[in-house]
């Protein structure tokens, strides 16, 4: 129910999540424009119109491999900086969601959210930094010494080797199982850390406290004490997001299939672009819904503590 309420309330705050989505799309535009510009030049008068529409041939990719390498390097570099910008935007918009979740007012969405975004910004930056440190610790646990010692050495008793240690296992499926388990545990850990970070932000907002560390510790304690209460409102929203992505993926695959079979043209491309845009908006909406749903839990928890 909290999840549904969260989604409903967030829906009315469409200006805020629409703004978030627009800014994300704006950050994603430069690499696309780079590609557009480069490709226009590369095709020029050298390729028959439409020849490469359905499939970017091996011949084209190889003849332009140096330029494509440079293009990808530039795009990748931009994305790296854009990733930082996206994270800081995430911090900013999270402050807005927190404000909307707790101030008990109505109307003037952008003004209120903007106030909250500014008010909580540096505190949430500190939360973000703590999150990164904890992610690094978790990554080390699953990929470095603890994994190698506890799992590969003690549990599986694999001999040391210069290459892939999992080759000492008797079957490929065993190796797949080990790697899959590692990936699954890692993903769950990352997800829980990010949930914890959400609750840390909400606790800071509800108490108007300044300490990111205290927020984190409180959130972790809460998650450990009442995991179902903490995860309950968030899981349905996550499941809905997965369903949306699955639907979008299915639709995109069909469009792609028609394009690559030379059965569809620019209209299919327009549909794909529309899917990207709609998906961005919907996912930002669901992010806001998560804050409202989890905010209810935090509000109740704060009242309990009083």
């Amino acid at each position: 129910m909290r999840a549904l309420r969260g989604m409903a309330v967030a829906l009315f705050c469409w200006r805020w999540w629409a703004l978030a989505a627009l800014l994300e799309l704006a950050l994603a535009l430069p690499p696309a424009l780079l590609w557009q510009q480069w490709m226009g030049g590369a095709l020029g008068s050298r390729y028959e119109p439409g020849e490469l529409f359905a499939n970017l041939s091996t011949e084209f990719r190889f003849d332009h491999r140096s330029e494509l390498g440079a293009l990808n390097a530039n795009a990748s570099l931009w994305l790296g900086f854009a990733a930082l910008a996206a994270m800081l935007l995430g911090v900013f918009f999270a402050g807005g969601w927190a404000q909307l979740a707790f101030d008990g007012e109505e109307g003037k969405i952008v003004a209120r959210a903007g106030h909250g975004a500014r008010h909580f910004f540096w505190r949430y930056v500190r939360v973000w930094l703590v999150t990164l440190v904890l992610l690094a610790l978790w990554s080390w646990t699953l990929f470095d010494w603890p994994w190698k010692k506890l799992v590969l050495d003690w549990l599986l008793r694999l001999p040391d080797a210069t290459g892939d240690r999992l080759e000492a296992l008797t079957s490929e499926w065993s190796a797949v199982a080990v790697r899959s388990a590692q990936a699954l545990v890692y993903a769950i850990g990352v997800a829980l850390l990010l949930v914890c970070a959400d609750y840390a932000r909400l606790r800071i907002a509800s108490k108007d406290s300044r300490s990111a560390l205290a927020g984190w510790i409180g959130a972790t304690g809460f998650l450990l004490r009442s995991p179902l209460r903490a995860l309950g409102p968030i899981l349905p929203i996550f499941v809905l997001e997965v369903a949306l992505l699955a639907a979008a993926s299915g639709f995109a695959r069909r469009c792609e299939g028609r394009i690559s079979a030379d059965e569809a043209g620019l209209f299919a491309v327009a549909l794909l672009a529309a899917t990207t845009v709609v998906l961005a908006f919907l996912r930002c909406w669901l992010r806001g819904a998560k804050y409202f749903a989890a905010g209810e839990v935090v509000r109740e928890g704060t009242q309990d503590e009083r």
Binding site: A28, G40, A82, A83, M87, T276, A280
Partner: peptide
């Protein structure tokens, strides 16, 4: 050819948008 650059840059937009949304969630 004016259409083909649009087709392929759309995929770049899609990939970049999804990746940046992920990073936004970390913030």
């Amino acid at each position: 050819d004016r259409r083909t650059p649009l087709r392929w840059s759309e995929r770049v937009l899609a990939q970049a948008a999804v990746v940046l949304h992920w990073f936004g969630g970390i913030g």
